[in-house]
């Protein structure tokens, strides 16, 4: 196990180096840089940018250097834990990112929980009563979330919940709590706001979950041990929950690693529409405005989370499922 872990961790190093180079290359692909975006935006707003100041900023931000130099500067910083400088916020990236991580985590966690709560009963029912009317109806409802562009759902839900229930528009808490630390009152405010994004984000991943759970469970239900169990007179409920469901759940528990990257870019578009103080919209914005160190560092953090998440998933699976032996059979 330890040797396996060590090998996995070693392999991560070249992967991450390659990713950092590609990340940097990709965010440089679109034409222009942060300052040209800034100038364009000022012009579009009717403001006149000050040429001298732009030149000065370009030097100050190091945008006049070659991309290779910029990359080495950034990657070198990453090695010592310096995420670089955000042009747009005029702050170190670590300060910009840190603020929003709590809310991103809260939202990702809540949305995942919502998905599980909705998808589990539907998935189990659909598998047990395969091809029944209920199966079709529930699957259909679950799929609506997958099939509708989330940006539109978000807007519609937000507008009508405001009109009908007077729900607040956008955000994750009342603006008055924006600059306050987390408190009970703020938490209550968050509860009042968070259900819209949870429903919107949760719905889009529910269908996938229902489908997987149903397929996994159907596979298990055909196994001989189920027949044996039934022959031995186990009740249907006991029969279902005791073994097949546990087996069918393994892939999901193993999938826990994939929640990690969601912290960064999860449901970014919904985040934009609902104006959530999470990392996703910030990443989109950074990409759009060429705030390259912010965007780059975001993507790097995310890549690390993906790689770590995969590792966690593998370990979780091994712990859960005694049939899997890590490190064995990987030649094939």
């Amino acid at each position: 196990m330890l040797a396996y872990l060590a090998r996995r961790l070693l392999v991560m190093i070249p992967t991450l180096v390659a990713i950092s180079a590609i990340v940097f290359f990709i965010i440089q692909l679109p034409p222009g840089d942060y300052l040209s975006t800034m100038v364009e935006e000022l012009l579009a707003q009717g403001e006149k940018p000050d040429g001298d100041r732009i030149r000065m900023l370009r030097e100050q931000f190091g945008l006049d250097r070659t991309p290779i130099e910029q990359y080495l500067h950034w990657a070198g910083g990453l090695l010592v834990g310096d995420l670089g400088w955000s042009f747009e916020y005029n702050l170190p990236v670590s300060q910009v990112v840190g603020e929003r991580l709590v809310m991103s985590f809260l939202l990702a966690f809540a949305a995942t929980l919502f998905t599980y709560i909705v998808a589990f009963p539907i998935g189990i029912y659909s598998a047990v009563r395969q091809y029944s009317v209920g199966d079709y109806a529930l699957t259909f409802v679950g799929f609506i979330g997958l099939a509708t562009p989330s940006f539109l759902i978000a807007l519609v839900v937000m507008h009508f919940s405001n009109v009908w229930f007077g729900a607040p528009v956008g955000g994750l808490y009342d603006p008055a709590y924006a600059e306050q630390p987390l408190s009970w009152a703020k938490f209550v405010s968050v509860l009042g706001h968070i259900w819209i994004p949870i429903v919107v984000i949760g719905l889009s991943s529910t269908a996938e979950m229902i489908r997987q759970l149903r397929a996994n469970l159907l596979d298990e239900l055909q196994r001989p041990y189920v027949v044996t169990g039934r022959a031995k007179g186990l009740t249907e409920g006991r029969l279902l929950f005791r073994y097949p469901l546990r087996m069918a759940l393994n892939p999901f528990i193993a999938d826990i690693g994939s929640i990690l990257p969601k912290l960064i870019s999860g449901s970014a578009i919904v985040g934009v529409v609902l104006s959530l103080p999470t990392n996703g919209p910030m990443l989109l914005r950074a990409l759009q405005s060429h705030d390259m160190y912010l965007a780059g560092s975001f993507l790097m953090i995310e890549a690390v989370l993906v790689v770590v998440g995969m590792l966690i998933s593998d370990i979780a699976l091994a712990l859960l499922d005694p049939r899997i032996r890590l490190g064995a059979g990987s030649e094939k």
Binding site: N162, V169, G170, G171, P175, V272, V273, L274, S275
Partner: peptide, 19 residues
């Protein structure tokens, strides 16, 4: 004076909600 930051597309909606 308080200045809330929201996505530009959301501004009409927030104004409509009296914010």
């Amino acid at each position: 004076v308080t200045m809330a930051v929201a996505d530009a597309k959301l501004i009409p909606l927030k104004v409509n909600a009296g914010e």
